[in-house]
Every structure is written in C-alpha cells, then in structure tokens.
C-alpha cells in the first residue's frame, strides 16, 4: 500500500477524527481531535469530508517520505513546516510527489496541529471511528506510527489543480479566556468557592494530556466533602476534587467521574484549551447556555459554508 512513510515521529502523534459516539454506555471514551476546529479546517483545505481522520501532533513533529505517486496535504495549526527542506506555510494545501520529504517541526504558537491528506488515510474504523484511544487499545494506526512505518492513504495519486488556503482572519485565534457554563454540580461549592473559580487565574500543570488539563491556582471551596455518586462526564467537564484544584476533562477523559463539576466549557472553546501548554495561564468567563449555543451554532454554520470561504490559487 502507498501513502506516507514515517522517517521519525513523536509518540504524541496519533490518528484522530471527530471521535466515537454511542459507546459511552459501555465505558468507551469519545476520543477524537482535541482541536476539532483545526481538524475540520485541515480536511476542508484538501477537499475531504470535514470529519476525516488526520494525524494530530502535540508540541513536537515528525518527518515523512511520500511513497504514493502523489498526495495533496494540508496542515492546520501554527507549526514549522518544510517540504524537501524548504519552509512552507500552514493552512495551505500542497501537492507532493513520490520521494518528497515532509517535515513537521515544533509549534510557533499553540500546541496542536493536524495533518490531512486528500481522500484520507486508509484506516479501518473501530466502534465507528478511526480515533485512537491508546489506553484502551482502540482505533488508530498503532505501531505503524514509528520510524519505518507505512501510513496508507486512500488515494495513490492526485491531479494538479488549484491549491486552497484559509486566510488568517478566518483562523481560530488562540485565547486564554475560556467561556464556561455554570454547573451541573455548582451547588456543591460555597459562594466563596464559585467566586474563587470565576475571579482567579489558573495555570496549566505539567501532567496535563489528552485526558485532561490539570490546573493550578487558588483552591476552590467545597460545600460538601468533594465527592458525588459517580455520574457521566464529557469533554469540557470541570471537576474539582477535594483538594480544590480544578481538572478540565478533555477528549480522552473517562466516561464517568466521582467529583462535583463546577462548570462545563462551551464546546467552541475546547479548541482553545487544546492549544494551551503547561505553564500557560487561563481565566474562566461565565456565559449562559443560550450564549454557548449561539457560539456553537455560528461555528457550525461557518463550517457548513467553509468551501466558499477558502481562497484558491
């Protein structure tokens, strides 16, 4: 099979799509891209369905040699990118030929970036998705993602044609102000605890990953003992264990948890969280459910017409 051959790669690189739905009742995590905005942008740039699986990179990159006759690729995220040693822009599609070397470097800003190939990678979905959940051994490319591994693509050749780009004004800006909706267990905190949460600055801790961002900052006061009967959680749930330091659950978070949840991140701001690195500060801003839904509806409408918004050259 032809596609991309791995020359070297960070273990933090994984195949992700928009995640796995319908299996949480069996304890299976949703997974999927941490930054769903940029995953969809990468796919749009190469003309894919927006939910096609891409390679997700976090903080570090990798190097690939094209083994297909020709491929069209795009990278969404602000990373150093080179083709055969020459610097190339992100958020632009590129046509590559057999033998070309594509290097994904480190991020210039943010943390995560997405490599899409036109037609998508050839990967068998597991439980309805190609997303990798490494802890439970579900989905993805497994041990192909190491030096010498071959990542097969659906297409072996792509025609010459117009390339596409997304202009900076339409890209998602990085943000350290994270909009959240209060609850569902805000009654488990004192008025003082809620005030601490909304007025303080928190810092992303070192041991943050795809499961969740651990935050450090002023301790949040509980009204009770900091435990609840375990209930379902979702990406964006902000749990506060007894010690009072919040944890924002992310794409690979568990399906259930036993800590009260003070607030839940607006879906559109999960992408902003995905771009925060350990040490970065952030502040939570309270919005209403209606506001969070307006933001989400606006984002979905942006993606339903993204074809028309891309520049072609």
């Amino acid at each position: 099979m032809n596609g991309l051959q791995v020359i070297h790669l960070t273990p933090l690189c994984q195949l992700q799509d928009l995640g796995r739905r319908g299996w949480q009742v069996q304890g299976v995590t949703r997974s999927g891209a941490m930054d769903r905005f940029n995953l969809r942008v990468a796919n749009a740039l190469v003309g894919n369905h927006l939910g096609t699986a891409c390679l997700e990179f976090a903080l570090t990159g990798g190097e690939f040699k094209v083994s297909a006759h020709s491929l069209r690729i795009a990278f969404a995220g602000e990373f150093e990118l080179t083709i055969n040693g020459a610097a190339q822009p992100c958020f632009v599609s590129h046509r590559l030929c057999r033998g070309d070397v594509l290097t994904v470097g480190t991020p210039r800003r943010g943390v995560r970036g997405y490599l899409a190939v036109a037609g998508g990678f050839a990967c068998k979905p597991e439980l309805g998705s190609c997303s990798t959940h490494s802890r439970s051994g579900i989905g993805g490319f497994g041990d192909r993602l190491r030096a010498g591994g071959e990542l097969p693509t659906q297409l072996n050749a792509v025609a010459h044609g117009l390339e596409r780009s997304l202009r900076p004004a339409l890209r998602r800006p990085l943000s350290r102000e994270i909009r959240v909706v209060r609850g569902p267990q805000d009654e488990h905190f004192t008025a003082m605890g809620l005030q601490t949460f909304f007025k303080s600055q928190y810092t992303v801790a070192q041991d943050s990953d795809r499961m969740g961002l651990r935050l450090e900052g002023p301790s949040i006061e509980h009204a009770g003992d900091g435990n609840i009967i375990s209930d379902p959680v979702l990406p964006g749930s902000i749990q506060v264990p007894a010690a009072g330091q919040p944890i924002v659950l992310m794409a690979d978070g568990p399906t259930t948890g036993g800590y009260p949840k003070i607030a839940t991140v607006a879906s559109v701001d999960l992408a902003a969280l995905a771009q925060l690195a350990p040490g970065d500060p952030l502040q939570f801003i309270e919005i209403s459910v209606a506001d969070a839904q307006s933001l989400l509806i606006a984002e979905e409408s942006f993606f339903s017409s993204i074809e028309m918004r891309l520049d072609r050259f």
Binding site: Q24, V25, I229, S230, D231, P232, L234, Q293, I297
Partner: peptide, 22 residues
Amino acid sequence: VVEIVPSYRSLLIHYDCTQIGL
C-alpha cells in the same frame, strides 16, 4: 439526541443544538 449515558442515579443526554433547541 446523539447519545444517552446512564449511571447510578443520573442520565446524561447528549444532543445537537443545531437540530433541537434546549
């Protein structure tokens, strides 16, 4: 309605707000 997740004493209903209002 996208997904329904039961637990001991609660049920989380995931929905798509572009298809159904709150």
